[in-house]
Computed example of a mutant assay.
Amino acid sequence: MSEKHRFSPRTERRDAAENRQRILDAAVRLFEENGVEPVSMNQIAAEAGIGPGTLYRRYRNKGELCLDLIKDNVVYVFEEMESYLERNKTEPPHERLKEILSLFILFRESKAQLLKGVEDSMSANRTASPTNSPLYGELHQHFLHLFEEMSREDQVQPNSVFKADMLLAALRSDTYLFQREARGHSPEEILEQLCLTFIPQG
Protein backbone atom coordinates (compact mmCIF):
# COMPACT_ATOMS: atom_id res chain seq x y z
CA MET A 1 0.00 0.00 0.00
CA SER A 2 1.38 3.41 -0.92
CA GLU A 3 2.09 6.08 1.67
CA LYS A 4 -0.53 8.29 0.05
CA HIS A 5 -3.32 5.75 0.43
CA ARG A 6 -2.23 4.62 3.87
CA PHE A 7 -2.53 8.09 5.37
CA SER A 8 -5.25 9.71 3.26
CA PRO A 9 -8.10 8.81 5.67
CA ARG A 10 -6.20 10.53 8.50
CA THR A 11 -5.64 13.58 6.32
CA GLU A 12 -9.37 13.74 5.53
CA ARG A 13 -10.23 13.49 9.21
CA ARG A 14 -7.74 16.22 10.06
CA ASP A 15 -9.10 18.44 7.29
CA ALA A 16 -12.64 17.88 8.54
CA ALA A 17 -11.59 18.78 12.08
CA GLU A 18 -9.85 21.91 10.83
CA ASN A 19 -12.94 22.91 8.84
CA ARG A 20 -15.10 22.39 11.90
CA GLN A 21 -12.85 24.61 14.00
CA ARG A 22 -12.82 27.32 11.33
CA ILE A 23 -16.61 27.22 11.22
CA LEU A 24 -16.96 27.45 15.00
CA ASP A 25 -14.41 30.26 15.27
CA ALA A 26 -16.15 32.20 12.51
CA ALA A 27 -19.55 31.68 14.11
CA VAL A 28 -18.31 32.90 17.49
CA ARG A 29 -16.84 36.06 15.92
CA LEU A 30 -20.04 36.84 14.03
CA PHE A 31 -22.30 36.02 16.97
CA GLU A 32 -20.28 38.25 19.29
CA GLU A 33 -20.42 41.14 16.81
CA ASN A 34 -24.03 40.81 15.69
CA GLY A 35 -25.91 38.44 17.98
CA VAL A 36 -27.00 34.97 16.93
CA GLU A 37 -30.33 35.63 15.24
CA PRO A 38 -29.24 38.06 12.46
CA VAL A 39 -26.31 35.93 11.28
CA SER A 40 -26.97 33.65 8.30
CA MET A 41 -25.32 30.36 7.42
CA ASN A 42 -23.92 31.96 4.26
CA GLN A 43 -22.25 34.66 6.36
CA ILE A 44 -20.67 32.00 8.56
CA ALA A 45 -19.38 30.11 5.52
CA ALA A 46 -17.88 33.29 4.05
CA GLU A 47 -16.28 34.26 7.36
CA ALA A 48 -14.81 30.77 7.69
CA GLY A 49 -13.47 30.86 4.13
CA ILE A 50 -15.33 27.74 3.02
CA GLY A 51 -18.14 27.02 0.60
CA PRO A 52 -21.77 26.87 1.81
CA GLY A 53 -21.90 23.21 0.74
CA THR A 54 -19.05 22.36 3.11
CA LEU A 55 -20.85 24.12 5.94
CA TYR A 56 -24.19 22.42 5.28
CA ARG A 57 -22.56 18.99 5.08
CA ARG A 58 -21.49 19.42 8.70
CA TYR A 59 -24.42 21.46 10.05
CA ARG A 60 -27.89 21.21 8.53
CA ASN A 61 -28.91 24.51 10.14
CA LYS A 62 -27.73 27.21 12.52
CA GLY A 63 -29.32 25.42 15.46
CA GLU A 64 -27.01 22.43 15.05
CA LEU A 65 -24.04 24.79 14.94
CA CYS A 66 -25.21 26.57 18.11
CA LEU A 67 -25.63 23.22 19.82
CA ASP A 68 -22.07 22.26 18.88
CA LEU A 69 -20.82 25.52 20.42
CA ILE A 70 -22.51 24.81 23.76
CA LYS A 71 -22.29 21.02 23.88
CA ASP A 72 -19.41 21.00 26.37
CA ASN A 73 -21.43 23.32 28.62
CA VAL A 74 -24.48 21.08 28.24
CA VAL A 75 -22.46 18.02 29.20
CA TYR A 76 -21.01 19.87 32.19
CA VAL A 77 -24.35 21.11 33.54
CA PHE A 78 -25.93 17.65 33.31
CA GLU A 79 -22.90 16.10 35.00
CA GLU A 80 -23.37 18.66 37.77
CA MET A 81 -27.02 17.66 38.09
CA GLU A 82 -26.20 13.95 38.18
CA SER A 83 -23.49 14.52 40.77
CA TYR A 84 -25.81 16.59 42.95
CA LEU A 85 -28.63 14.04 42.75
CA GLU A 86 -26.25 11.19 43.56
CA ARG A 87 -24.86 13.00 46.61
CA ASN A 88 -28.27 14.08 47.93
CA LYS A 89 -30.52 11.07 47.50
CA THR A 90 -32.00 11.49 50.97
CA GLU A 91 -32.93 15.16 50.52
CA PRO A 92 -36.64 15.88 49.99
CA PRO A 93 -37.57 15.82 46.29
CA HIS A 94 -38.70 19.45 46.31
CA GLU A 95 -35.23 20.51 47.51
CA ARG A 96 -33.58 18.47 44.77
CA LEU A 97 -35.92 19.93 42.15
CA LYS A 98 -35.08 23.46 43.27
CA GLU A 99 -31.35 22.77 42.92
CA ILE A 100 -31.79 21.22 39.44
CA LEU A 101 -33.76 24.29 38.38
CA SER A 102 -31.10 26.59 39.81
CA LEU A 103 -28.32 24.81 37.90
CA PHE A 104 -30.25 24.96 34.63
CA ILE A 105 -31.14 28.63 35.04
CA LEU A 106 -27.46 29.47 35.62
CA PHE A 107 -26.63 27.61 32.40
CA ARG A 108 -29.45 29.33 30.52
CA GLU A 109 -28.28 32.76 31.64
CA SER A 110 -24.71 32.10 30.51
CA LYS A 111 -25.66 30.76 27.04
CA ALA A 112 -28.94 32.56 26.35
CA GLN A 113 -28.41 33.51 22.69
CA LEU A 114 -26.92 30.19 21.61
CA LEU A 115 -29.65 28.29 23.43
CA LYS A 116 -32.28 30.37 21.67
CA GLY A 117 -30.56 29.54 18.36
CA VAL A 118 -30.89 25.84 19.13
CA GLU A 119 -34.55 26.20 20.10
CA ASP A 120 -35.46 28.34 17.09
CA SER A 121 -34.19 25.57 14.85
CA MET A 122 -36.20 22.98 16.79
CA SER A 123 -39.33 25.14 16.50
CA ALA A 124 -38.95 25.24 12.72
CA ASN A 125 -39.26 21.45 12.72
CA ARG A 126 -42.90 21.11 13.72
CA THR A 127 -42.71 17.33 14.03
CA ALA A 128 -39.91 17.44 16.63
CA SER A 129 -40.88 17.10 20.27
CA PRO A 130 -38.90 19.30 22.68
CA THR A 131 -38.68 16.44 25.15
CA ASN A 132 -36.98 14.27 22.53
CA SER A 133 -34.21 16.81 21.91
CA PRO A 134 -30.73 16.03 23.23
CA LEU A 135 -30.88 19.25 25.20
CA TYR A 136 -34.19 18.80 27.03
CA GLY A 137 -34.87 15.07 27.14
CA GLU A 138 -32.70 14.39 30.18
CA LEU A 139 -33.98 17.48 31.99
CA HIS A 140 -37.56 16.31 31.44
CA GLN A 141 -36.70 12.93 32.96
CA HIS A 142 -35.24 14.56 36.07
CA PHE A 143 -38.41 16.64 36.49
CA LEU A 144 -40.64 13.63 35.95
CA HIS A 145 -38.88 11.45 38.51
CA LEU A 146 -38.90 14.19 41.14
CA PHE A 147 -42.58 14.99 40.60
CA GLU A 148 -43.39 11.30 40.95
CA GLU A 149 -41.48 11.21 44.24
CA MET A 150 -43.45 14.22 45.48
CA SER A 151 -46.76 12.60 44.55
CA ARG A 152 -45.86 9.47 46.53
CA GLU A 153 -44.91 11.54 49.57
CA ASP A 154 -48.08 13.66 49.41
CA GLN A 155 -50.30 10.64 48.64
CA VAL A 156 -51.88 12.50 45.75
CA GLN A 157 -51.76 11.53 42.09
CA PRO A 158 -51.20 14.60 39.91
CA ASN A 159 -50.20 14.05 36.29
CA SER A 160 -46.43 14.11 36.66
CA VAL A 161 -45.81 14.00 32.91
CA PHE A 162 -48.02 17.06 32.43
CA LYS A 163 -46.23 18.94 35.22
CA ALA A 164 -42.81 18.05 33.78
CA ASP A 165 -43.97 19.22 30.33
CA MET A 166 -45.23 22.53 31.70
CA LEU A 167 -42.10 23.19 33.75
CA LEU A 168 -39.96 22.46 30.71
CA ALA A 169 -42.07 24.88 28.65
CA ALA A 170 -41.52 27.58 31.28
CA LEU A 171 -37.75 27.22 30.86
CA ARG A 172 -37.70 27.46 27.08
CA SER A 173 -36.38 30.65 25.55
CA ASP A 174 -39.65 32.23 24.43
CA THR A 175 -41.24 31.97 27.88
CA TYR A 176 -38.13 32.49 29.98
CA LEU A 177 -36.88 35.52 28.05
CA PHE A 178 -40.34 37.08 28.15
CA GLN A 179 -40.22 36.91 31.96
CA ARG A 180 -36.67 38.30 32.00
CA GLU A 181 -37.10 41.09 29.45
CA ALA A 182 -40.78 42.02 29.35
CA ARG A 183 -41.71 41.32 32.97
CA GLY A 184 -38.34 42.34 34.38
CA HIS A 185 -37.87 39.34 36.67
CA SER A 186 -34.39 38.38 37.80
CA PRO A 187 -33.21 34.76 37.51
CA GLU A 188 -33.62 34.44 41.28
CA GLU A 189 -37.22 35.69 41.08
CA ILE A 190 -38.01 33.30 38.23
CA LEU A 191 -36.60 30.40 40.26
CA GLU A 192 -38.70 31.41 43.26
CA GLN A 193 -41.89 31.70 41.19
CA LEU A 194 -41.30 28.36 39.49
CA CYS A 195 -40.88 26.70 42.86
CA LEU A 196 -44.06 28.33 44.18
CA THR A 197 -45.97 27.24 41.08
CA PHE A 198 -44.74 23.68 40.65
CA ILE A 199 -43.79 22.52 44.15
CA PRO A 200 -46.61 21.76 46.62
CA GLN A 201 -46.53 24.20 49.50
CA GLY A 202 -47.24 22.72 52.89
Rank of each mutant, 00 (worst) to 15 (best):
L135M: 07
Y136N: 08
G137W: 04
E138R: 14
E138L: 10
L139N: 06
L139I: 07
H140G: 00
H140T: 00
Q141H: 11
Q141G: 07
Q141E: 13
H142V: 11
H142A: 07
H142K: 13
H142P: 02
H142R: 10
H142G: 05
F143H: 10
L144F: 15
H145V: 10
H145D: 10
H145Y: 12
L146Y: 03
L146H: 01
L146I: 01
F147K: 03
F147M: 05
E148V: 08
E148W: 03
E149T: 01
E149Q: 14
M150Q: 10
M150E: 12
S151V: 05
S151M: 05
S151Y: 00
R152W: 04
R152F: 03
R152S: 09
E153K: 11
E153S: 10
D154V: 02
D154H: 15
Q155T: 07
V156L: 13
V156A: 13
V156K: 13
P158D: 14
P158V: 07
N159M: 03
N159D: 15
S160L: 06
S160G: 12
V161G: 01
F162Q: 06
K163R: 15
K163W: 12
A164W: 03
A164P: 02
D165P: 11
D165A: 01
D165E: 11
M166R: 06
M166I: 11
L167N: 09
L167V: 12
L167S: 11
L168T: 15
L168E: 14
L168I: 13
L168V: 12
A169D: 08
A169G: 14
A169H: 10
A170K: 00
A170E: 13
A170R: 05
R172K: 08
R172Q: 12
S173M: 02
D174F: 00
T175M: 09
T175F: 10
T175H: 07
T175R: 08
Y176L: 09
Y176N: 00
F178E: 08
R180V: 02
E181C: 02
E181N: 09
E181T: 11
A182C: 06
R183D: 08
R183G: 00
R183A: 13
G184F: 05
G184I: 04
H185Y: 14
H185G: 01
H185L: 15
S186M: 05
S186R: 09
P187D: 06
E188A: 14
E188Q: 13
E188S: 10
E189C: 04
E189M: 07
I190K: 02
